[in-house]
Simulated scan of single mutants.
Amino acid sequence: MSIPEVPKPTSAHELEFYSNHFRKYELLIEYKNLREPEHCPTGVYVMPSIDNIYEWYGVIFIHRGYYKEGVFKFFIEIPEQYPYAPPRVEFITSLFHPLVSKDGRFSLDQQFATWRPRIDNICHILHYIKNSFKDAVLQNLQEEYCLNKEAYRTYVRDRHAFVKLAAQVAQASSSEKSVYERIEGSTLNFSYMTDDEAETLRLKLITNQGAVSLPSASPAGGQSVFDKITTNINYFFTGHPENGHGGL
């Protein structure tokens, strides 16, 4: 049996259409691969915009270190030239960090000084985002790559003050006001609900019945808002209560 021949582009316009279509397909595959534990770091969750595959919304939960119990929301803008041009990362949640400018822009320059198409990709950026909260990265930062010089110099010259400021922004980020603040266009908004409502939603997730939104139960039963969210978001993404990997 003969295999039908796939029509080839006959014009520059058609060639551009096929190229753009293929890049979007590649991006969808890359997002799907975030299911793999080695691709998406623990405590990091991302989801593309409903209307634009080139816009991803994310959240990172910090479980230890200077920013312990921080809940930081961020945004990834992917250029149409990707993977030949790097994405741009911007934190939505206010953050005192050497690599984060006062308007939220996150610097990738030190880690990705030269962007390598199809070698460097979004999963590497997600790992770098997580690692940037750890001493292993903070201790090796060069000031020229830091967008917040004050945070960098505080970390280097006055660690005690840095620890205090990092704890303050972490505490503010996990407050109900910050966690439940709705970000226009974001696919990772949290909804306040009671424990009973959260349990009903978890049952829907387990049985895969109907569309749901991100759950975040009330901080009852001795659990903080941070603990509640980290439990429920794992139900949403993985179907399990453990602090599993992010991604789909």
Rank of each mutant, 00 (worst) to 15 (best):
M1D: 09
I3L: 14
I3Y: 13
P4T: 12
E5W: 11
V6M: 13
V6E: 13
P7H: 10
K8F: 13
K8Q: 14
L15G: 08
N20G: 09
N20F: 13
F22K: 13
K24T: 14
N33P: 01
R35N: 13
P37I: 09
P37N: 01
P37L: 11
P41W: 00
P41N: 04
T42Q: 11
T42P: 03
V44E: 03
V46P: 02
M47D: 12
P48M: 09
S49H: 09
I53S: 10
G58E: 02
G58W: 07
I60M: 03
I62N: 05
R64C: 07
G65K: 03
Y66L: 08
Y67G: 00
K68S: 08
K68H: 02
E69W: 06
E69K: 12
G70K: 05
F72N: 05
I78Y: 02
I78K: 10
P79T: 08
Y82Q: 07
P83Y: 04
Y84G: 04
Y84T: 13
A85C: 12
P87D: 04
P87S: 07
F91G: 06
F91M: 05
T93H: 07
T93Q: 03
S94F: 08
L95T: 00
H97T: 04
L99H: 01
S101T: 05
K102V: 13
S107C: 07
Q110M: 06
Q111R: 12
F112I: 00
F112K: 08
T114R: 10
W115C: 07
R116T: 05
P117G: 09
R118K: 15
R118T: 12
N121G: 08
N121P: 04
C123E: 12
L126Q: 02
H127R: 04
H127D: 03
Y128R: 01
N131G: 03
L141K: 09
L141H: 07
E144K: 15
Y145D: 13
Y145M: 02
A151D: 00
Y152C: 07
T154W: 05
Y155E: 02
Y155W: 10
D158C: 09
F162P: 04
K164M: 10
V169P: 00
Q171K: 12
S174V: 02
S174G: 01
S175N: 03
E176R: 11
S178M: 10
V179K: 05
V179Y: 01
F190K: 04
S191A: 11
T194I: 06
D196E: 15
R202E: 14
K204A: 14
L205F: 06
I206M: 15
N208R: 15
N208L: 14
N208T: 13
G210A: 10
V212A: 14
A217C: 14
P219F: 01
G222R: 01
F226S: 05
K228E: 02
I229A: 11
T230V: 15
F237P: 07
F237T: 10
P241W: 01
N243S: 05
